[in-house]
Design a protein around this nucleic acid. Structure first.
Length: 276
DNA sequence: GGAAGATGACAAG
DNA sequence: TTGTCCTCTTCCC
C-alpha cells in the first residue's frame, strides 16, 4: 500500500527487471486485455515514478500509466510467472521476472501528451532531486487550509500519503489543523527537509520508519511493536496508545477525508495571535 | 460467511 | 460533504 516511496522503488525494480527487454503483456483478469494485447511483445524502455504515479514506457512512446490508489499492489518477482492468483489486471513477464498489478485505481495505456498532463498537475516530489520546495511553499503560505490537508494535496506536493503526513507533523511538532498561512518559512523547510530524508529512507528499506533512535522501544525500555504497515512510527494508527515521547494518548480526527493522528502535548494546537 | 477498513482520488450535489 | 471504485485482510458472529 503506497505512498511515494513505494512507487519510486517500484519504478526502480521494474526498470531493473525489464528495461531493454522484450516482454509478454497480459491481463488475466481481463480489464486491461485490449491494451495488453497491443503491447504484447514490445520492448520496455524504462519505468519512472512521480509522486504516487507510475509510468512504464514501452517502445513507440507508449506508456502504461498506473496509480495504485488505496489498495492497489504491483509485485515484481524473479523467476517464471506462475498461474495468476486473484485479480491480476496486468502482468508483465519475460521468463526471468514477472510483475503482477492488482487493485489499481488507474491502469491506462497513454501517450506522451497525457503523461505530460499528469506530471504537470503534480507539486514537487521530495524524492526527486530536481524538486523545488519553494513551489509548494508558495501554495502553503497563501492557504488558510490546515497543513494536514495541504500535505495530502498532490498538486501542492506529490508523494506524501497519510502515514508520512502524520509522522512528519509529529516530528516537527506541528498540529495537523494548523493553517498553512500561519507557518513560518523555516517550519516549512523543516517539514520538506524531513520528508526528503524520511522518504529516501523509505525507498531504501521498503517500509516507513520514522522513530528517532532515542525514541525506539529499545531505547525507551519498552517492548517492540509490530505495526501492521511494516514500520515503526510515532502516531500513525496509534489512537489511544501512549505517545512514544510524552506518554499522553495519541489522538485522532478526520482531516481531508482521512484519519489524522497527533499528540496533543507534543503538537499543541495553534492559537492565532490576532484572536488575543 | 459477511462486514469493515486500508498508505487514494474522483465526481456529484 | 457524500458516494463510488479497486482488492485483500482482519475481525466478528
Amino acid at each position: 500500500m503506497p505512498e511515494g516511496h513505494t512507487l519510486h522503488r517500484l519504478a526502480t525494480d521494474l526498470t531493473a527487471a525489464f528495461a531493454g527487454r522484450r516482454v509478454r503483456v497480459s491481463s488475466p483478469q481481463g480489464r486491461f486485455a485490449a491494451d495488453a494485447a497491443a503491447l504484447d511483445g514490445a520492448t520496455v524502455v524504462a519505468a519512472e515514478s512521480a509522486g504516487k504515479h507510475l509510468f512504464v514506457e514501452l517502445e513507440g512512446e507508449r506508456y502504461v500509466h498506473v496509480h495504485l490508489g488505496l489498495i492497489g499492489s504491483f509485485d515484481v518477482r524473479s523467476g517464471a510467472a506462475p498461474a495468476p492468483v486473484g485479480q491480476v489486471r496486468l502482468r508483465i513477464e519475460n521468463g526471468e521476472a514477472y510483475a503482477d498489478l492488482r487493485g489499481a485505481i488507474v491502469c491506462d495505456l497513454v501517450g506522451p501528451e497525457r503523461r505530460a498532463t499528469v506530471l504537470g498537475a503534480l507539486g514537487p516530489d521530495p524524492l526527486r532531486p530536481d524538486a523545488d520546495p519553494d513551489r509548494a511553499w508558495q501554495r502553503v503560505r497563501r492557504s488558510t487550509r490546515p497543513i494536514g490537508d495541504l500535505l495530502l494535496d498532490q498538486s501542492v506536493l506529490a508523494g506524501v500519503g497519510n502515514v508520512y503526513r502524520a509522522e512528519v507533523l509529529f516530528r516537527q511538532r506541528i498540529h495537523p489543523q494548523r493553517p498553512g498561512n500561519t507557518l513560518r518559512v523555516g517550519q516549512w523547510r523543516a517539514i520538506w527537509d524531513d520528508l526528503v530524508v524520511l522518504m529516501a529512507e523509505g525507498v531504501r528499506v521498503g517500509r516507513i520508519d520514522t522513530v528517532r533512535p532515542e525514541h525506539t522501544p529499545e531505547a525507551m525500555g519498552r517492548a517492540a511493536r509490530d505495526d501492521d504497515h511494516g514500520g515503526e512510527v510515532y502516531v500513525y494508527r496509534r489512537t489511544g496508545q501512549a505517545c512514544l515521547v510524552c506518554q499522553r494518548p495519541v489522538r485522532t480526527e478526520v482531516l481531508a477525508g482521512r484519519n489524522s493522528f497527533w499528540c496533543a502535548r507534543c503538537q499543541p494546537r495553534f492559537r492565532s495571535r490576532a484572536v488575543q
